Simulated scan of single mutants.
Amino acid sequence: MRETIAQARDTVDGTAVGERILAGDLALQFLLFGETRLELIETRAAGFSMPKLKDGETAVIGHLVIDVDDLENTKAELTRRGIVLQGERKTDEVHYIFTAPQTTFGVTLQLMEHKRCGTGA
């Protein structure tokens, strides 16, 4: 992950945002490219996998993170549209939920509200 962060800095002026997050068998780090935030995920144990596609292929993009200003309103709207929501988590800094990829064009979306600043869509 350190090498990836260094490459992002050197090639497209990407900067690490916040602290590296250790979450069980995963390490997470956010990078900022202009107004775009990219989440890097480093797996630390066998068995973690990306979503499976047809014919045993593996997705290259596991999920996309979308910052929102009001997650509760976003959840209500997505539910109204028939999107299945799963894996909700709330901390002092963020509140987020994932969509079931079968209901969002084959890609898991992570909708994230940051508690300290409204920086989403």
Results as ranks from 00 to 15, higher is better:
Ala46Leu: 12
Ala46Ser: 13
Ala46Arg: 15
Ala46His: 13
Ala46Phe: 15
Gly47Trp: 11
Gly47Pro: 11
Phe48Gln: 14
Phe48His: 14
Ser49Ile: 14
Met50Val: 12
Met50Asp: 07
Pro51Lys: 04
Pro51His: 09
Lys52Val: 13
Lys52Gln: 13
Lys52Tyr: 10
Lys52Asn: 06
Lys52His: 10
Leu53Gly: 06
Leu53Val: 03
Leu53His: 03
Lys54Pro: 09
Lys54Arg: 06
Asp55Val: 03
Asp55Pro: 04
Asp55His: 08
Gly56Ala: 14
Gly56Cys: 06
Gly56Glu: 09
Glu57Trp: 11
Glu57Cys: 11
Glu57Tyr: 08
Glu57Gly: 13
Glu57Asp: 13
Thr58Asn: 10
Thr58Pro: 10
Thr58Met: 14
Thr58Ser: 14
Thr58Glu: 11
Ala59Gln: 09
Val60Pro: 08
Val60His: 12
Val60Cys: 09
Ile61Thr: 15
Ile61Val: 15
Ile61Phe: 11
Gly62Leu: 05
Leu64Tyr: 03
Leu64Pro: 01
Leu64Asp: 00
Leu64Gly: 04
Leu64Cys: 04
Leu64Val: 08
Val65His: 03
Val65Pro: 00
Val65Lys: 03
Ile66His: 08
Ile66Trp: 09
Ile66Lys: 02
Asp67Gly: 00
Val68Gln: 00
Val68His: 00
Val68Asp: 00
Asp69Glu: 10
Asp70Phe: 03
Asp70Ile: 00
Leu71Ala: 05
Leu71Gln: 03
Leu71Trp: 05
Leu71Gly: 02
Leu71Cys: 05
Glu72Ala: 07
Glu72Met: 04
Glu72Leu: 02
Glu72Asn: 07
Glu72Ile: 02
Asn73Phe: 07
Asn73Trp: 06
Asn73Ser: 15
Thr74Ser: 11
Thr74Met: 10
Lys75Gln: 15
Lys75Asp: 02
Ala76Phe: 05
Ala76Cys: 09
Ala76Lys: 13
Ala76Met: 03
Glu77Ala: 08
Glu77His: 13
Glu77Ile: 08
Leu78Ala: 08
Leu78Gly: 06
Leu78Asn: 02
Thr79Arg: 10
Arg80Cys: 08
Arg80Ala: 14
Arg81Glu: 11
Arg81Lys: 14
Arg81Asp: 08
Arg81Met: 09
Arg81Trp: 12
Gly82Thr: 01
Ile83Arg: 07
Ile83Pro: 06
Val84Gly: 06
Leu85Gly: 10
Leu85Arg: 06
Leu85Lys: 11
Gln86Val: 10
Gln86Glu: 15
Gln86His: 09
Gln86Ser: 11
Gly87Tyr: 04
Gly87Phe: 07
Gly87Val: 05
Glu88Trp: 04
Glu88Tyr: 02
Arg89Asp: 12
Lys90Val: 02
Lys90Trp: 02
Lys90Cys: 01
Thr91Ala: 07
Thr91Ile: 03
Asp92Phe: 02
Asp92Leu: 07
Glu93Pro: 01
Val94His: 05
Val94Cys: 01
His95Trp: 01
His95Gln: 01
Tyr96Gln: 09
Tyr96Thr: 02
Ile97Asn: 00
Phe98Cys: 00
